[in-house]
Structures are given as structure tokens and as C-alpha cells.
Computed example of a mutant assay.
Amino acid sequence: MRAAVFTDYGEPLDVREVDDPEPDPDGAVVAVEACGVCRSDWHAWQGDWDWRGLDPVPGHVLGHEPAGHVLKVGEEVERVSEGDHVAVPFNLGDGSCHRCKTGHSNICENRQALGLQPDAPGAFAEQVPVPHADHNLVKLPEGVSSTEMAGLGCRFMTAFHGLAHRADLGAGDWFVVHGCGGVGLSAVQIATALGANVVGVDLVEEKLDFAE
């Protein structure tokens, strides 16, 4: 398959042929149809996050906001099948720890950061392997394209969790967004959908235009 391979900090990615991945017994391989480009990818590419252990090595593949169709499944997989239209989360949980079982697999005790750790190759490629497929893969509803899903990515999930699950934002509440970047604009849209009165604040006129 083809992949955009990391070569060194700040250097252009190298599109080349690499080996096709094979699924773990409880994993799957997804044929990538779209993948978002996140600021986190940029930080990793620049070497900003080596202090967090998120430092790609030459030969690694970045990309953590993919969607596509399941190409292969391991023999232990039960919930997903070849051909299913799915999204892949950024934080991959093992599905067995207390955090995963209580709905917090984003902070799984054994989580892997897709595309940002050596043992979790990313999705700037034609295929991406996904461990613990029954737990991690999210089936997409009819009418949602891979491109639309990749555009949501972790920025929307971050904003949604903060507003809907933590802040319990609702109709009639006032909500101010300081900074209308990727997460900020996602928050504007989600807060509006929840019925809140939204105020966007930014120093860049173009971003305020997007917020409106």
C-alpha cells in the first residue's frame, strides 16, 4: 500500500510503498477513505511533544482521524465485519480495563495514541490497523460520508465531551468561546445545536466570519 511516511522533524512526508498491515486476532484493518489533518499531527511532525513520549521515528506514519470501510478482521472479532463503514478514534482502548468498561476509553490504562506512538501506526495511508476492533471501531450511520467523519475528528469529540458531558450545556445557557480555531469553531457549532446563546471571541476577523 501507499503511505505518507515521516522522515524527520519538519521535513516533507515521503509517499512510498510500504507493507500492507495484517489484523491482530482481535483487531481489524480499515481501508482509509479520508483522514483529517490535526494540529496534533503538526506538533508531532515538528517534534514538539517528545517530552510526552509522542515523538515519531523515521518510517512512522502519522494521522489519527480516519474513516473508511473494514477490509480485514481477526478471527476473534465479533461486532464488526468486513465492509462495515467505520470511524477510528484517536485514543485506542483495550476494552478490558475499568476506564474502558465505564465509557472512558480515551483514558484507558493501556491506551495507544493512533499515529503518534511507534506501536500505533497512523492513517496517512491506504490502510490502517486497529487493535481491539470490537471496542474501538465505531460504525457510521447511513448518510455520513468518510470525508464528513474525518472532518469531525478529534476536534469535535473534544468539544462535545467538554460541553455536553462535563459542562452540561443546554438551551438558554450563555456560552463564550475564546479562540475560534478548530476546537473553538466545533464548540460554536455544538453549543448552537444544544440551544445555547453563543459568543465567539477572536483577534482574527476571518475566524469570526467562520464562527458566524
Rank of each mutant, 00 (worst) to 15 (best):
V183M: 05
S145K: 04
E76R: 11
G63W: 08
S145W: 03
E22M: 02
H135T: 04
K101T: 14
A113C: 08
E75Q: 03
H85M: 00
T192I: 00
V15E: 13
R111Y: 15
L62W: 12
H43Y: 13
E17H: 13
A187C: 10
Q127D: 02
P56Q: 11
S105H: 14
H165D: 15
V88Y: 08
A67W: 04
S146H: 04
A171T: 13
W174V: 06
D14T: 10
C180W: 12
E76M: 04
T7K: 09
H135E: 01
N106D: 15
A133I: 03
G68Q: 06
P89H: 08
H69C: 00
L163D: 05
P23F: 00
P56R: 09
A3I: 13
P21L: 08
H60I: 00
E109R: 13
G36W: 05
V32D: 08
D26H: 00
A120N: 09
T158A: 09
V204S: 10
D14P: 02
G27A: 08
V183G: 08
E33S: 05
V15L: 15
A164H: 14
G179D: 11
V204Q: 15
V138L: 14
A44H: 11
E206Y: 01
A133T: 07
A120T: 07
D48A: 15
D19W: 02
E82C: 03
D55V: 00
R99A: 15
V70T: 01
A87H: 06
G143D: 02
D168M: 12
E17R: 14
Q46H: 10
E205D: 15
V198C: 04
V199M: 13
V77P: 05
